[in-house]
């Protein structure tokens, strides 16, 4: 028996919004410790990893490890039926071929349930090595989304250059060039408005706008985002999912032909 109840059901809705453009289908691996999803986008350029800790749920039970393969378009359609303040419960029997989503209004006066067919997905799981990144940039997630959107007007790629002076995002194309520099904030009223740069060595890497823009669909999940970079390894774009977990996107840097 698997059952996970989340009072802050809107978090699950936002997680789906954050992955559904990148992934058509994916497996949710349910274990005693929580729920994880790891999947590559169709073109195998990026990797998404979602981790939801068991302790983060208001009720969590997983008697046996369970892999739930889901069509994310269908899952998203079902979660759209939940109101933002609904309590969401996911439920499945051991070895089941369906999962049930239960939505309860805060007053408990309306309860809906939707059953969805599970899929058998043969997906490769990739081992992600522990990495000490040369640069870790924390910035407001809305700012990052804005930068990606604005620079996408100029070209297909964004160059992210991190140095001790700050971080510079650049793009170049037919209409010209764009540069956005962010310095580390010296003092801020709110922690989520801060730009914090932890740097061991300067790093400059180039990434595809298309993917960065898809990653920013996670913006509603968290006021801050972190970008981790090292030379010649994938960028990690990480958003926390409330207090219950995090979503990480990995994107290989572009290389010169």
């Amino acid at each position: 028996m698997f059952e996970a109840r989340l009072v802050q059901g809107s978090l699950l809705k936002k997680v789906l919004d954050a992955i559904k453009e990148l992934l058509n289908e994916a497996s949710w691996d349910c274990a005693d410790s929580g729920i994880q999803l790891q999947a590559m986008d169709n073109s195998h350029v990026s990797l998404v990893s979602v981790n939801l800790r068991a302790e983060g749920f208001d009720k969590y039970r997983c008697d046996r490890n369970l892999i739930m393969g889901m069509d994310l378009t269908s899952m998203s359609k079902i979660l759209k039926c939940a109101a933002n303040d609904d309590i969401i419960t996911m439920k499945a029997q051991d070895n089941a071929d369906t999962v049930t989503f239960i939505f309860e209004s805060p007053s408990q006066e309306k309860v809906s349930d939707y059953e969805m067919k599970l899929m058998n997905l043969d997906q490769d799981h990739l081992g992600i090595p522990e990495t000490d990144y040369a640069c870790v940039i924390k910035l407001p997630s809305g700012e990052f989304a804005r930068i990606c959107r604005d620079l996408s007007n100029f070209g297909e790629s964004i160059v992210i250059a991190c140095s001790k002076e700050g971080v510079k995002f650049s793009a170049a194309g037919d209409i010209g060039t764009g540069n956005i520099k962010l310095a580390q904030t010296s003092s801020v009223d709110k922690e989520e408005e801060a730009v914090i740069i932890e740097m061991q060595e300067p790093v400059t890497l180039t990434f595809a706008c298309r993917y960065l823009n898809m990653f920013t669909k996670a913006t509603p999940l968290s006021p801050q985002v972190s970008l981790s970079m090292s030379p010649d390894v994938p960028l990690v774009v990480e958003y926390s999912i409330g207090d219950i977990g995090q979503i990480q996107y990995f994107l290989a840097p572009k290389i010169d032909d």
Partner: peptide, 14 residues
């Protein structure tokens, strides 16, 4: 021109 490598190049199957 730059090209986009696959994420497979960096992470091995576990």
């Amino acid at each position: 021109m730059s090209k986009q490598p696959s994420i497979f190049k960096f992470f091995s199957k576990s």
